[in-house]
Design a protein around this nucleic acid. Sequence first.
DNA 1: TTCATGTCTTGATGAGCATCAAAACAGTCG
DNA 2: CGACTGTTTTGATGCTCATCAAGACATGAA
Lengths: 102, 102
Amino acid sequence: MTGAALSEARAVALARVFKALADPVRLRLLSMIGAAEGGQACVCELTAGFEVSGPTISHHLKVLREAGLIEGDRRGTWIYYRAVPGALDAVSDALVPNRVPA
Amino acid sequence: MTGAALSEARAVALARVFKALADPVRLRLLSMIGAAEGGQACVCELTAGFEVSGPTISHHLKVLREAGLIEGDRRGTWIYYRAVPGALDAVSDALVPNRVPA
DNA sequence: TTCATGTCTTGATGAGCATCAAAACAGTCG
DNA sequence: CGACTGTTTTGATGCTCATCAAGACATGAA
């Protein structure tokens, strides 16, 4: 956030992603998905880790999906979600441009 | 977000910061402060760059201040705001731990 | 087809937030 | 002190969001 000033349009787009990240449940969902075996997890596993109801988890997953942070595909009975590659890196870059991949 | 699963407490703390970033006006304020001469800007300069009213800018600056992202000090008539060093880096680290300073 | 399971959508409710106008506070200058 | 500028606080309003209960949809099995 030290480079040139942010344009209005870019600020709106970035704010949308940050809004998706601005909830403890969604952060933990994202974390659980990333930490899961093979980088993916089905909704049943995710729901088990929280005290909130199934529909609420589904709602949060939808928010993350619409923000471009995760994507899911149905495999038989279950739906598996995984992180969209590079999505979080792009957000990280926007915050601190002077960083490079390890 | 690929390491160990996030604790509930850490998720709540992180979400608080993301919530502060989840507004286009606040993102642009942060950007303008970072891009300003000497890394600091007075409220009058910031207000001039927006269409919203003065009190609204003041409100957003307060949110950023309470999130630990900026700090301000009065210097005569004007109050100057600047970014808290390392605050954004910490957020960036939380998102993508596998990055190192350039 | 009928049933059971997993996931999502709908509808409703209560809490939180962005915004502004008006008032209050802080500091400078005459 | 009094007038003025810069900044914040207060109060009110409309909107968005998180959550749940109930129902709907999708898939696989009997």
